[in-house]
Each structure stands twice: as C-alpha cells, then as structure tokens.
C-alpha cells in the first residue's frame, strides 16, 4: 500500500518504455457540420515498464480518450502511440497490441460475456487460440490472483459489483498482458467494492509486476500511484510524484480538481501555523504528522 517508489529518476532508455504517446491529437468529427470537437491537443506521455501511473482530470478533460489510445480502441488524428515499440495505427499488429495492453472499464456488467465466471475469464485466451489445457491453467491462475477462484462456477449476475470487477480483471490477466489500463474501474462501486478493486490493483503492480495506468477522479486512489499525470482540456497540466502534485492545492482547485482529504487537512493545519509537512497523502501519514505535532 505504501510502495511509493521514486521512479522519476530512473534513466529513460527506449526499452524501458511500455507505452509512448507522442504528441497525440484527437478530435471527434461533428455530425452537424460544425467545427470538429478537439479532445486531445498534443499529449505526450511515456509509461515505463512496471510503473503505476494515475491519470487524473475532471469530466471531459480527455483522460478516458487518451486511455483508449493505449490499446488502439481509438487512433490518434495526429501524432502516434507506440506500445512496446508497436505503432497502434498498424492494423496487422492489433492482436499483439491488445494482448500487451489490456483494459478494464467502468461498468462491470458490460464487460462480462459468459454465463459462468470461469468461462468469462477464458474468453480472452480462447480468442487467442491457446490450447484448452493451457487455458485451464491461465484461468485458474488469474482467478486465484484476484481472489475469485472459489466463485469460478458462479453466474456473474449473482456477484457483487466489486466481485464482478475482479472477474473482469481476471479476464484480462488471463491473457498475460504486460500492462493494464483501468478506465475509472471503481466509479460504479460501493466503498467495499472500491477497496477490493484497489487492493487487486496494488497486487498487480506489486507481486505480478504489471504496468498499471489508472484513470480516476478519486484523488485517494491516485495517491497510491508512482506518478500522477493531470490532464485538463486535452493537455497535460502537470505531472510528478503524488506528493509533489497534490501539494499545489491552489493550482488544482483552479482546474476544478480535488486533493486527497488528508492533504487538504494537512495544508489547512499548516495554514493555521502548525508544523505539518505539505506532502501528506494517506490518512495514516496525516495521523502520524498530527500525532507528531501533539507530542512535540
């Protein structure tokens, strides 16, 4: 939970980069003949192997749009996106790209295909033409990784939101991707479901070493990442370690973004003259800082 690694100083050789968006532009063509709607206006992001990156932004900022470029669901109108060096606009590489970068969406119901959990998890490997025996092993491993193995024979519609989302994650893990992009995976879940999904994401980045891109508007979730990128109006507003980014409360406010409640409290107390560090992120850190003040 507190593995906030400092990755920004790792030297950035080309082989380290998992996904590279280079000056990406994207616009929706309008249906009524007016100006096309520009959603992305020159976004450049490099996601390194094994990194956990959070993409933040309010509604309509373009954060979901850039995410959909990462496995060729959308193709850039300008610039290019490379996945492990493969250009997403090359149609012959499509299967390989989607096998490398998996994607989990907001609504857990709308991404499950089969009537039985294990058959749903098997859907990806089946599409890839993997032999049956190997699929069995992939499915069992994936379900164990998300803690849903006991539910393998259940019907998806009988599961809770958090459980469904974990099954959806298992369906992606079973394809053995190098990277998983999460597009607001907790937006439709109750607090318990959110916790389940965030714990699973922690496990992916920790034990399984999968690169994770998390699109969210919950600041607390973004605080867990190695790096936070804030998108506003189709451009990158700022990026850096969560503690750096969230310390600029005024700037975030100006762009209609929240900061984690712990950071906000810490800053408020600083303003009142207490000696509390500005880069507090989690409730635990916050509690510790306040405790330290009390006992000074």
């Amino acid at each position: 939970m507190e593995n906030i690694n400092i990755t920004s100083d790792i030297s950035q050789s080309a082989s380290d980069v998992q996904i590279s968006a280079q000056d990406v532009y994207f616009e929706y063509e309008s249906t009524d003949g007016t100006e096309p709607k520009k959603v992305l206006r020159g976004v450049s992001i490099d996601i390194r192997k094994g990194e956990f990156v959070a993409l933040l932004g309010h509604n309509g900022s373009g954060k979901s749009t850039i995410a959909k470029h990462m496995n060729a669901i959308l193709l850039p109108s300008g610039g290019r996106v490379l996945v492990s060096g493969m250009d997403t606009s090359d149609e012959s590489l499509l299967t390989e790209i989607r096998r490398t970068v998996g994607m989990v969406f907001q609504n857990p119901d709308n991404q499950l295909v089969a009537t039985i959990v294990e058959e749903d998890v098997a859907f990806g490997p089946e599409n890839l033409g993997i032999p049956s025996k190997e699929i069995r092993a992939l499915v069992d491993d994936a379900l164990k990784a998300v803690g849903m193995y006991e539910y393998r024979r259940h019907a998806p519609h009988k599961l809770s939101g958090g459980q469904k989302q974990r099954v959806a994650i298992a369906g992606i893990i079973a394809m053995r991707p190098k990277c998983i992009v999460f597009d607001e995976p907790t937006a439709m879940l109750d607090p318990r479901g959110r916790q389940e999904v965030m714990d699973t994401i922690d496990k992916l980045t920790g034990e399984l070493g999968i690169t994770v891109v998390l699109i969210t508007h919950y600041m607390d979730e973004a605080a867990r990442a190695d790096r936070v990128i804030i998108i506003d109006d189709g451009k990158i507003l700022t990026e850096g370690k969560p503690s750096e980014v969230f310390s600029h409360i005024d700037m975030l406010r100006k762009h209609h973004l929240d900061v984690p409640q712990s950071t906000e409290l810490a800053q408020y107390l600083r303003g009142m003259g207490y000696d509390i560090p500005a880069d507090v992120l989690t409730p635990e850190e916050c509690a510790r800082a306040i405790f330290a003040v009390r006992h000074r």
Partner: peptide, 21 residues
Amino acid sequence: DLATAMDCRCYTSGSGRTRLN
C-alpha cells in the same frame, strides 16, 4: 460497451478460437 470490451479481449470471430471446456 460490451463490443469495446470484446475488442479489447481480441475477439474477432469464430475462426481460430479454442475452448476452455
């Protein structure tokens, strides 16, 4: 939504598919 999710999981059509069971 489902069509996009199926695309992401490399679904093309029947040919070349294998089965779990």
